[in-house]
Design a protein around this nucleic acid. Structure first.
Lengths: 125, 125
DNA sequence: TCCGTTGGTTACCTTGAGGTACGTACTTTC
DNA sequence: GAAAGTACGTACCTCAAGGTAACCAACGGA
């Protein structure tokens, strides 16, 4: 793989074209079906579980929880529990997450803005 | 859905948070497992099929062909056949594809550069 | 009193993404 | 004359992504 220890402490950059590079895993978390949308949503503002669930159309509770766990494990999302009568859990982006989300939001925004062009290129205008 | 005809000719922007918006489909093509890597590879330079196959570690011929077809259908990739003794097919980004690829390359590049940070956040330093 | 909300987990089941393997038609190289 | 490279298409099969449904505990409102 591409991330190795050379003299004992050196961490090299990743190479997504390499099957065995761990960056592949990170890329797949970030670009996963629901991962993209979670990052984009949290890029707007921190949200609670049910708020995210309502914001992201079509996601099941199971997949939302699973996606949030994966993003939290990669250090992109911070899970914050406020002990209260109805359980209250807030998710927010970490510093790392905000940078990743910025790129994702850029891509998502571009797609949304250029959707007419894309559909035109498809239908063959 | 979010892309509709209002007065008869107006095409609105998409909304990826809406399950029924066609932008969801486009987003999933672009962020698909192999779609990201194809866009990133073609962002470097136009390539032939076998060149792409070698460049992108782990992709099968079947999935590469399928991904290229999807991206071509969305108008991101141009397929150019040069009739020759050994078949010669070159793939290049369209104008639309270059813009999309720019965002993807940005994200991929960020992940590659920050991989050490991400792995550190994971392992829990 | 019973329902709905919150934030999940778990079990079960289906679908489809994606891998393997083989066919093809032609050509160059050993 | 046998193998290998080019650019796929197709059939077959597997495994995991992901959906559905049920459950939980505590509280507020009708």
């Amino acid at each position: 793989m591409s991330v190795e220890v050379s003299a004992g402490l050196q961490a090299l950059d990743g190479d997504v074209f390499d099957t065995n590079c761990p960056s592949r895993g990170v890329l797949e978390h970030v670009t996963s079906r629901w991962g993209v949308l979670v990052l984009a949503a949290l890029g707007e503002r921190p949200m609670r579980f049910s708020e995210l669930h309502r914001r992201i159309g079509g996601v099941s509770q199971k997949m939302l929880a699973q996606t949030l766990r994966a993003l939290a494990a990669d250090g992109f999302v911070d899970r914050q529990v406020t002990p209260a009568a109805p359980p209250q859990v807030t998710y927010r982006l970490t510093a790392l997450g905000e940078q990743a989300a910025a790129h994702v939001v850029g891509l998502v925004g571009w797609i949304e803005r250029h959707l007419p062009d894309i559909l035109a290129a498809r239908g063959g205008a």
